[in-house]
C-alpha cells in the first residue's frame, strides 16, 4: 500500500515537472501561430480558433530574418569547425603527454570558465576597433573560436583519456607518424566525442548575444540574437512576431541538443563522477 502511493507520487511529480518545462515553449509556439488580434484578446484564448503562419511570413518579408539566419549559420558553423580542429590537437596533447607547464595551461583553461568574462568586453571592443574588425563577421568567428577553445579542450581531453594508449602506439610501431596515428586511428574511434563538442560549440555560437551586439551594428551582418535584440527595442509590443522569431531561433538548437545530449553528458560527467 505504502509502495503503491509512493509510485503514484512519483508519477504525479514527473507529470507536473513535464508540464512546467514544456508549457513555456509551447505557449510561445501557440502565440507565434495566432493571428495578431487573437494575441491581445481577453480572456486569453488557450487554443486559437484559426492558426496562421502570418507572423513567420512577416518576420521574413518585413524584417528579413533569412539574412540573420544565414549570418548566424555562417558564423556558428565556421567557428565550431575551427574550434573542433584546434581543440582536438590541444586536448590530445593535454591527455597524452606530461610536460613542463602542463598544469599551468590546464589551470589557464579552467579559469576562463570561472572569471567574469565581461570585464574583457570593453577592451575587446577597443582591440577590434584597432584591428579594423568592427562590423565584420570575422570578428565573431574569431571571438567565438577563442571563447570555446578552453571548454572544448577540457571536454575532449576526457574522451581521449578513455582511449587506450596502446592503440596509437601500435600504429606508430607500424610506421605511422604521431599526427597520422591521431587522424587515422584515434579520431575515428572518438567520433562521438568530436560530434558532441562540435554541436555544443555550434549551439553556444548560435546563441551568443553580447559580443555580437558590441561588434555588429550593420543590418546586413547581424546574427539572429542581435536581430532579436533590436527587435525587442523596436517592437516591444509585437509578441506575435517576437514569438515567431524565438521559435526560429530555438528550433535548430533544441533539435541538435537532443541528438548530442547523451555524449556531452558522458564527456562532462566522467571526470566528476569518477571523483
Amino acid at each position: 500500500m505504502k509502495r503503491y502511493s509512493l509510485r503514484g507520487l512519483k508519477v504525479v511529480s514527473l507529470a507536473v515537472y513535464f508540464a512546467l518545462m514544456v508549457f513555456p515553449l509551447l505557449w510561445i509556439a501557440i502565440t507565434s501561430l495566432k493571428p495578431q488580434k487573437d494575441i491581445f484578446t481577453y480572456p486569453i484564448r488557450y487554443w486559437p480558433e484559426t492558426l496562421t503562419w502570418q507572423n513567420y511570413a512577416d518576420i521574413i518579408r518585413v524584417s528579413k530574418f533569412q539574412i540573420y539566419i544565414a549570418n548566424s549559420l555562417l558564423v556558428a558553423l565556421t567557428a565550431a569547425l575551427i574550434v573542433a580542429v584546434i581543440s582536438v590537437l590541444s586536448a590530445y596533447v593535454m591527455a597524452r603527454f606530461s610536460f613542463r607547464g602542463h598544469g599551468q595551461v590546464m589551470l589557464g583553461f579552467f579559469l576562463t570558465q570561472m572569471l567574469p568574462g565581461f570585464i574583457s568586453l570593453g577592451p575587446l571592443y577597443m582591440m577590434m576597433t584597432r584591428l579594423d574588425l568592427v562590423n565584420t563577421r570575422f570578428s565573431l568567428i574569431l571571438m567565438y573560436t577563442v571563447g570555446l577553445i578552453p571548454f572544448s579542450t577540457i571536454l575532449l581531453k576526457g574522451f581521449f583519456e578513455r582511449i587506450p594508449k596502446s592503440l596509437e602506439e601500435a600504429a606508430m610501431i607500424d610506421g605511422c607518424s604521431r599526427l597520422s596515428a591521431l587522424v587515422r586511428v584515434i579520431l575515428p574511434v572518438m567520433m562521438n566525442g568530436i560530434t558532441a563538442t562540435f554541436i555544443f560549440a555550434f549551439v553556444q555560437n548560435w546563441n551568443e548575444l553580447f559580443m555580437a551586439v558590441m561588434f555588429i551594428d550593420n543590418e546586413a551582418l547581424k546574427t539572429l540574437p542581435v536581430a532579436m535584440n533590436s527587435f525587442v527595442m523596436k517592437f516591444d509590443i509585437d509578441w506575435g512576431a517576437m514569438s515567431a522569431g524565438t521559435m526560429m531561433s530555438v528550433i535548430p538548437t533544441v533539435v541538435l541538443f537532443a541528438i548530442a545530449q547523451r555524449y556531452i553528458v558522458e564527456g562532462l560527467t566522467q571526470g566528476a563522477v569518477k571523483g
Partner: peptide
C-alpha cells in the same frame, strides 16, 4: 528529450 531542452536555449531568449 522533452524536459531537458532549456539547456539548448540562450539566457536572453
Amino acid at each position: 528529450g522533452f524536459v531537458f531542452y532549456p539547456w539548448a536555449l540562450s539566457g536572453f531568449l
